[in-house]
């Protein structure tokens, strides 16, 4: 992401030489994520919303709920659909136009963490089997890009879902449904957190900022639920990992996920 950005050799060398001394450009430890902050329920017209900042990365997530038809092969479950926009508002290196591959990867990685963790019980979103289910649109817009949008997106999506209130419905004749004014909170079954580790040379660091991300050769995004189970995983970019290295990275990420989840739960309580 931000492929047009040319990082200077001087900065590249500097980042690498610091890593050799076990230091990072912003003073963090290798396994330390940036501060995460939330602004919940900002958008009243959405069923749920959150602005999340992870260090310098900032994005807004909105959840809209609409009644629609289920998929034929899952007639009694609701639907979650996730989209991301890398809006040029967020970086001089984003361009307007149809979603880039980066935006698609970002949306899909987020979608998997939400879906596979069973964060929301989709069967509870069914109104009339085969006919009518709730469709949750999780849409996010990046507002400021300072690296590692993945973890910001997942934690933002969970935060927005946790603030989501779904309207109650009344059954009418002929499978018609009336949407009532009254709402009830969406129940969150699990709280997935994703943690991305970036590889620069022989070093693996957690939650890269923009410049670190530009220097890195590979990254791996791992989603964990609150029972410390892996619920999603995505290796990105062209670099590679040794098996032991990957396991070590995942363990490190797990520890970080606990810290981030603590912050999320604090914000939600």
């Amino acid at each position: 992401m931000g492929d047009d950005f040319v990082i200077s050799e001087i900065e590249k060398d500097y980042i690498k030489s610091l890593l050799e001394q076990k230091k990072r450009i912003d003073g963090r430890e290798f396994n330390q994520a940036r501060n995460v902050e939330f602004e919940l329920n900002l958008v009243k017209k959405a069923e749920g919303s959150a602005i999340v900042t992870l260090g310098g990365s900032k994005l807004i997530v909105g959840v809209k709920a609409q009644l629609g038809s289920p998929f034929p092969d899952t007639p009694d479950t609701g639907v979650i659909t996730t989209s991301a926009e890398l809006s040029p508002i967020a970086s001089p290196y984003f361009e307007s136009g149809p979603p880039s591959n980066d935006a698609i990867e970002l949306a899909r990685v987020t979608d998997r963490a939400i879906r596979e963790s069973h964060c929301v019980d989709l069967s509870k979103l069914c109104v009339i089997p085969k006919k009518s289910v709730w469709i949750l649109f999780i849409d996010f817009y990046i507002l400021n890009h300072d690296g590692n949008l993945f973890d910001a997106a997942v934690i933002g999506a969970v935060a927005a879902l946790a603030t989501t209130k779904i309207p109650k419905v009344k059954m009418l004749e002929d499978d018609e449904v009336e949407i009532l004014e009254e709402v009830e909170p969406l129940k969150i079954e699990h709280y997935p957190i994703s943690v991305t580790s970036y590889k620069i040379g022989e070093y693996n660091i957690i939650d890269a900022n923009f410049k670190e991300e530009r220097v890195s050769e590979a990254r791996v995004t791992v989603g964990f639920d609150e029972k410390d189970r892996i619920v999603s995983l995505q290796k990105g970019a062209t670099g590679v990992y040794k098996p032991d290295e990957l396991l070590a990275v995942i363990k490190e990420s797990l520890n970080v996920s606990k810290t981030l989840r603590k912050e999320l739960m604090k914000a939600l309580s």
Binding site: Q66, G68, S69, T81, S83, I104, D111, F137
Partner: peptide, 21 residues
């Protein structure tokens, strides 16, 4: 008038659940 959300999902140029399926 309320659009059928399903139809809208298909039009979206965004990644959508369909692919996933």
């Amino acid at each position: 008038p309320k659009e059928e959300p399903k139809a809208e999902v298909k039009e979206e140029p965004q990644p959508e659940i369909k692919d996933e399926k």
